[in-house]
């Protein structure tokens, strides 16, 4: 006779899995990857491959020797961390620094908390911020985009529009003056600007975001509330003093706002659980970003803003519970 399996209900499962979620995000990142390869050539491929390989390798090591559990490299989360880290680096970044960044991202950002699901901070951002603070020169040396040039020779490098803006406005110039030389909004939209691998093309990132929304990997709450709050607050500043503050469209299209809003802040592990909490989280990131960009020492504030809000997630989870059924009785 057959030995039947016995368990509590439910006896069926949706077939959803961690792998599917992780690879879904990776697929959503591919358009942006293609754009960066198109503009930054072999450098982009090099940085991406090194970051992914190093992340997977460190994940394996930590899991094997520190946590002593079953290997988790198959679940795709290490690949995703590596890819996201690479997206936050310039294409001319030295290989050994990438490896150090991966070590910090995986080792400190993720495995030291016990591996996938337990990390309070987005691992890729931990790696990026570590690199930004440790190697500021290399991290802000952005090669200019060249179409389809496949060589490893260093291309011309220059500052990003944001850094340009910060520097010139800091020197007392007006925004209009400072932004004379920057690429047009259309170039920013399709990605023909200097910057980290993944952040340059707004279009590619939005395509990825729509894919994830359709696959229900992310919900709209975080990206929309984050981008919305940035647009509103920046618009207020812009209206108050257009000479000192750039317009919201400029901010949204440059730097890592879209990458952050769509891929970084929505990281499941480090974002709040309830829709209400997610909106609070998104708005918090948006406000912090605007303040750091306009008043802080760094031209770019998204990663800091996300990390700061990451640390508040447990509190947000506690304060914003979902609407319980039968809580407010509305008997019509």
């Amino acid at each position: 006779m057959n030995k039947f399996k016995v368990s509590l209900s439910p006896h069926v499962h949706s077939g959803n899995s961690v792998n599917k979620v992780m690879y879904g995000v990776i697929i959503a990142l591919l358009p942006a990857l293609f754009v960066s390869v198109y503009y930054f050539g072999l450098g982009a491929i090099k940085v991406t491959l090194v970051a992914i390989a190093a992340s997977v390798f460190f994940e394996y090591l930590f899991q094997r020797f520190m946590i002593k559990g079953e290997s988790t490299i198959g679940d795709g989360s290490a690949i995703l961390t590596g890819l996201l880290l690479a997206f936050n680096l310039p294409s001319s970044f030295p290989i050994w620094m990438i490896i150090v960044g991966s070590l910090v991202a995986i080792g400190i950002g993720k495995m030291s908390f016990g591996g996938l699901g337990n990390n309070p901070f987005n691992p890729a951002l931990v790696g990026r911020v570590f690199l930004l603070i440790s190697f500021p020169v290399d991290m802000t040396n952005w090669p200019k985009p060249q179409e389809l040039v496949f060589s490893l020779v260093d291309a011309d490098s220059g500052a990003t529009p944001l850094a340009l803006l910060k520097e010139k406005v800091g020197n007392g110039e007006t925004v209009a003056n400072a932004l004379k030389d920057i690429p047009s909004y259309f170039d920013s939209f399709i990605g023909q600007v200097g910057g980290s691998l993944g952040e340059v093309s707004a279009a590619a990132l939005i395509i990825g975001g729509i894919y994830m929304l359709m696959k229900k990997i992310i919900s709209w709450h975080i990206p929309v509330s984050m981008i919305g709050s940035i647009a509103v607050l920046q618009a207020i500043f812009f209206l108050i003093n257009p000479d000192k503050f750039a317009d919201p469209a400029f901010h949204l299209l440059t730097g890592g706002i879209l990458l952050g809003a769509i891929f970084m802040a929505t990281d499941m592990v480090t974002s709040p659980m309830t829709p209400k909490g997610q909106i609070v989280f998104g708005v918090g990131i948006g406000l912090l970003t605007v303040f750091i960009r306009n008043f802080g020492a760094y031209p770019e504030g998204v990663s800091f803003a996300i990390l700061i809000m990451n640390s508040l997630v447990p509190l947000i989870n506690k304060s914003f519970t979902p609407k319980r059924f039968g809580e407010e009785v509305t008997n019509g």
Binding site: K3, V6, S7
Partner: peptide, 19 residues
Amino acid sequence: ERVNTYDGAENCTIAHNLY
């Protein structure tokens, strides 16, 4: 002799409450 296979959460009380 085992007559069926338990397939639920690894927890005695859960299994006990089930069957």
